[in-house]
Design a protein around this nucleic acid. Sequence first.
DNA 1: TACCTTCATAAGCCATGATTTATAATAAGC
DNA 2: GCTTATTATAAATCATGGCTTATGAAGGTA
Lengths: 103, 103
Amino acid sequence: MAYEGRLFAALADPTRRAIFERLAERRHSVAELARAVPVSQPAISQHLKVLKEARLVRDEPDGARRIYSIDPKGLGPLRRWLDRFWDDQLAAFTVAVEDKDDQ
Amino acid sequence: MAYEGRLFAALADPTRRAIFERLAERRHSVAELARAVPVSQPAISQHLKVLKEARLVRDEPDGARRIYSIDPKGLGPLRRWLDRFWDDQLAAFTVAVEDKDDQ
DNA sequence: TACCTTCATAAGCCATGATTTATAATAAGC
DNA sequence: GCTTATTATAAATCATGGCTTATGAAGGTA
């Protein structure tokens, strides 16, 4: 309920969204992501740290590698935050339409 | 379809989310927002500019004032972006549960 | 042991952005 | 026309954040 900030901040960066979208397709090691996304490996690690703290990704060890994947429940708070405004928005939309009819 | 970036960036700032949530309840003039949110009036105007460019709010003149309200369709792209991952996430969740059963 | 791979962290740099004060522009009321 | 209220913009400051290179730690392999 106070996680929206971290979620929005994590997803605001285009590189981080690229990483997240890659992981949504399949799991990746850090090196795989570094090959796929045009930034250095340390940059990838730093982005993964942010995504992990936002609970958007998980990691698990695999020998010397570390496999990152999407945290299934990660986008839940974002969706709930969005739903808070969904009804309000529909109402506002209705009002907007009525306002237009007035003209 | 390329607006997610602006949307996430706009909503990443806590002050901007506070403004957006106030507007979700009812329309406000700039001065009203400046009284409700603990930043200066120019800061409010600048935040409103960002929110407007992200198509999250609208404004209309009312004499010397300017009334800001939520743009009804503003969160649409965000919801669509979210839905892109919803099925993926459910699948990932299923896999995660199965993986746990394996242990 | 030595070597190679993989990853995370530290340090430094640079750009962006959130904020403030000052100021200009527009509208309303006297 | 003058003053007041309301809002937007300009300029300056300061903090944050994303990126790089360098380095160290941990695992695998000969």
